[in-house]
């Protein structure tokens, strides 16, 4: 150190070892590799464990709805699971994305400061409520109260097949599971959107206002376009949770292995709920089949995220970043 100071040339030539930088680099590179390694090993594990069931299936894994992997001639497939997962997640997204964005906008640009702070706090709190609580609440409270809504949909919108109910039973349906999922992912979407809306530069907001934009026009002109990538990311995180949510859905749905487009009728099933419900009673081939369905869920989630990234990247020049 002293030598370096007395000889000015040595301070710019030669390669000084900067320990801090090296350690930092090691940690960051290591973490990056670790994530990739984890993802790959999960993928490999699922594939490896799933393969045996594929060779012991007398039906088509993708188009079969039934799930009897442990009988002497195994018949099982993911059609009903994929349908249920997709429908429940779609209902959740339709309800939660607009509501989440709306709440976030209210907190950031409409509400008085005190109310905004309190609301933000409660939404963060809601995000931390465990799934099982949502499941119990959905089962015990929401389900009885949703019957009227489902019956109303059946009576007045029943000409649309998805709202038609042929059973006069309005409980334990994909509709209710979707609503519970919506409530679960709402805080995630809202909290992330709020963070993004808070980062909209003040001078863009003022630019819009100075042009004579009303508050809503300002939001449309400056806030939403700037927040678009963040809204997409928030929605994808929400969708990820909706696709993978297990226990709340398992509590609510009465597992039925059929593709039923009448969403307010009892029945339906999802990948995650099915794995949780069937795991303990599954034989060797059953376990392998469940893992195979897990692999599909894993791939769907990857695909959803890749598509979202693609959407965000498409207008990169205009991102404002």
């Amino acid at each position: 150190m002293n030598q370096g100071l007395s000889d000015p040339r040595s301070s710019i030539s030669g390669s000084a070892v900067r320990r801090g930088d090296q350690i930092f680099r090691l940690i960051t590179v290591g973490s990056g590799i670790l994530i990739l390694a984890l993802m790959t090993s999960i993928g490999i594990f699922l594939t490896w464990k799933a393969i045996p069931s594929f060779s012991h299936n007398s039906s088509n894994f993708f188009t079969e709805s039934k799930w009897f992997p442990d009988q002497s001639t195994p018949i099982f497939g993911i059609a009903a699971l994929a349908f249920g997962t997709f429908v429940a997640a779609l209902i959740a997204m339709i309800l939660a994305v607009p509501t989440g964005i709306g709440t976030a906008l209210f907190i950031t640009y409409y509400a008085p400061k005190k109310i905004a702070g309190a609301m933000a706090f409660f939404i963060d709190l809601l995000a931390a409520v465990p799934s099982i609580i949502f499941g119990l609440w959905g089962l015990q409270f929401l389900m009885p109260h949703m019957q009227g809504v489902a019956a109303w949909l059946d009576r007045y919108l029943g000409f649309i097949p998805i709202f038609q109910n042929r059973s006069d039973l309005y409980t334990k349906s994909l509709l209710i599971a979707g609503v519970v999922l919506a409530i679960m992912i709402l805080p995630t979407i809202s909290a992330i959107s709020r963070e993004v809306f808070n980062q909209v530069p003040r001078n863009h907001v003022e630019a819009a206002l100075a042009l004579g934009a009303t508050r809503w026009e300002m939001v449309r002109m400056a806030v939403l376009p700037f927040g678009r990538p963040g809204i997409i990311s928030a929605s994808m995180l929400g969708l990820g949770r909706a696709l993978g949510e297990t226990i709340a859905v398992a509590l609510i749905l009465s597992a039925v292995f059929e593709v039923n487009i009448h969403i307010s009728e009892p029945g339906g099933n999802t990948f995650a709920a099915n794995i949780a419900l069937k795991w303990n009673e599954a034989g060797p081939n059953g376990l392998s089949a469940l893992i195979a369905s897990g692999l599909v869920l894993f791939l769907i989630t990857l695909a959803v995220n890749s598509i979202a990234r693609g959407i965000i990247a498409r207008r990169k020049d205009f991102s404002g970043a």
Binding site: P201, N203, H204, E206, A207, A208, L209, A210, L211, G212, A213, T214, M221, A222, P225, F226, R228, R315, F318, S319, G320, A321
Partner: peptide, 22 residues
């Protein structure tokens, strides 16, 4: 105030074109 701002334009210290717009 919205109508006032439509008749009285403003240019700011830091250029602030909307980044998401052409």
């Amino acid at each position: 105030p919205v109508n006032v701002r439509r008749t009285i334009g403003m240019v700011f210290q830091r250029p602030n074109p909307f980044p998401t717009m052409s």
